[in-house]
């Protein structure tokens, strides 16, 4: 048996390692997000450039769509947006989410959050499930962080039903991840079921998806609102 001093040193050593690993994961997610954002912006701009010389009819149409007009701003086909977020910001001003999202996670998908309604659910399988629900509005900082993560993901690239681990990894129990991103009338949902609890994938796109979901989960479970909910009633063994 080790002495208490040795064990204490080991506690601090492991803590440092875990903190460094978490920072590396965030840097990796950001490093993946930046070039993907750039690609998304370039593709959006390329798509929106006029294909030929503008005709008189085009100019008359543009005059009719003045700012504040009924037809409003053109939406990019890219659900995430091209950086022109001002017209589609939700009320709340600077730092508001230009898209709204919902995420379901956990063993059998018992936890969830919807940014549009603020509904935060810790467990749906409790004896009194109403005790495990609260309302929480993301702070500006959290909103900005999650927006960056979602923009970097480019969710349109993923199929509606997705296996980030390509059936190669598994665990029992497994978890469910359902990420929905909404902008205006457009919505994209990616559903991943029966995933290993390790958040690991051998596929870079799959790893990115898992990393983004895990980062969002960590933000949500680190909030005071989450902490104030009761402890889980059941443990899935």
């Amino acid at each position: 048996m080790r002495t208490i001093d040795e064990c204490r040193a080991e506690v601090f050593r492991r803590s440092e390692e875990k903190i460094k690993a978490r920072r590396r994961a965030r840097v990796r997610a950001a490093a993946l997000c930046v070039p993907l954002c750039l690609c998304a912006v370039i593709m959006s701009v390329a798509f929106m450039l006029p294909k030929g010389p503008r005709t008189e009819e085009d100019m008359m149409q543009e005059d009719g769509e003045a700012p504040g007009g009924a037809s409003g701003t053109e939406f990019s086909n890219d659900l995430v947006g091209d950086g022109r977020d001002d017209d589609v910001n939700a009320p709340g001003g600077e730092g508001s989410l230009s898209v709204s999202f919902s995420l379901t996670w956990g063993t059998y998908g018992i936890s969830s959050y919807d940014s549009a309604t603020g509904r935060l659910v810790k467990a749906t399988d409790a004896t009194r499930p109403e005790d495990y629900v609260t309302t929480y509005r993301l702070t500006d900082e959290e909103t900005e962080l999650i927006s960056e993560l979602i923009r970097g993901l480019d969710i349109d690239r993923y199929p509606d039903v997705y296996d980030p681990q390509a059936g190669k990894l598994g665990s029992d129990p497994s978890m469910t991840l359902i990420l929905s991103v909404r902008m205006g009338a457009k919505e994209k949902t990616v559903t991943a079921k029966n995933i290993a609890l390790t958040y690991e994938s051998e596929d870079p796109d799959g790893q990115l998806f898992l990393d983004v979901c895990r980062e969002i989960v960590e933000i949500l479970t680190g909030t005071e609102a989450w902490q104030s909910l009761p402890e889980y009633e059941f443990f899935y063994e």
Binding site: C7, E10, V11, S15, K18, R22
Partner: peptide
């Protein structure tokens, strides 16, 4: 011991849990 060390390191890494 290993598991207990991991549990205690959680107090340092996840201070707000």
């Amino acid at each position: 011991e290993d598991i207990a060390i991991d549990a205690l390191s959680d107090l340092i890494v996840h201070k707000h849990r």
